[in-house]
Nucleic acid binder design. Structure first.
Lengths: 169, 169
DNA sequence: ATGTATGCAAACCATTTGCAATGAC
DNA sequence: GTCATTGCAAATGGTTTGCATACAT
């Protein structure tokens, strides 16, 4: 928690510098949004953040959330994901490095896994003329739960097929 | 092109088996959609496919496209991406392996880069109880074009700041 | 005082859904 | 003949936009 407070101050400072440089106003909403984002770890969508802030006595409109996310993405304090459903997910960029996303294409569940610097220096060099701000491995597949459900469903179909074949004889 | 024809027949066969097993009907629309998808390489969204098929004398409704994509995803003949905008992009799964996506977070442009099996066997083992169907590295950042535009914009702001500072003196 | 940022409500648009007509089995 | 599939049009829902009000500068 100590470390987290320090991080929250650090990012606030960075955000302030960014806003100053770009001549954007330093509104209480903007700082509150950043601070709430860095108060928890893990993915969230706009609705989550909207509810979280409303529950914490700092209600902010959805429009402002969307606007502010643009700024936070631009200054790289926040990272955006789109895991499969048509919802944007976000994640703080600092204190959250190096993890892969394991996404179930059936139930949409997203698990995380640490990675050990997947991109080597030589691989990074291959990407000419491109300023990398973030990279992540997305692993799509089927989680154990859905895998099981699918297997059951297949067995059900096969049983039924067999039954009907016998009937037709 | 020879190889491509062979591939198109192969996937048609796989799709047929899948439809039979699951007791789904083998409609001309379904096979036409699969074939059109495998007729070109690279990403596309539903609108692209809709236009492509309409231009090729096989118009299909959007609803059918969405329905069929579900089947093709389920039998792993097609892969789905969400690069950043709220549009689903798709890509054929075969004849298209092993590439990373380099995504500009400003203009949304997606480049591809070959990868050399980023996930090692030991890393794959870490993912317990998960059936991997596909994985891909997504590298987010800023492409050279947007990078340049951004630099210009920053310089413009700084020039303006300086001018105003002098005026205030 | 000026004009950017906020918040509400309306608009937007990719995707989903409901339903009548079609056609695979 | 039956019922899954298609295609149209309407509904949905996350996101964006327009505009009046509030407030950072």
């Amino acid at each position: 928690m100590e470390a987290n407070l320090k991080l929250r101050e650090q990012v606030k400072k960075e955000f302030t510098e960014y806003l100053t440089l770009h001549k954007h106003r330093k509104t209480p909403e903007r700082f509150a949004i950043l601070d709430h984002i860095y108060a928890f770890k893990g993915h969230f969508d706009i609705e989550d953040l909207f509810n979280f802030m409303a529950d914490n006595d700092f209600p902010v409109s959805r429009a402002t959330l969307y606007n502010t996310m643009e700024l936070l993405l631009d200054c790289r304090l926040v990272v955006k994901h789109q895991f499969g459903a048509n919802i944007s997910n976000y994640e703080r960029a600092y204190g959250n490095e190096n993890h892969n996303h394991i996404i179930c294409t059936i139930c949409g569940d997203v698990r995380e896994m640490k990675n050990d610097d997947l991109l080597t220096a030589s691989q990074l060099k291959k990407i000419r003329k491109f300023t990398i701000s973030y990279y992540s491995m997305y692993i799509y597949g089927i989680c154990s739960k859905c895998s099981h459900a699918k297997r059951m469903e297949l067995m059900r179909i096969e049983r039924q097929n067999k039954k009907e074949n016998q009937k037709n004889k």
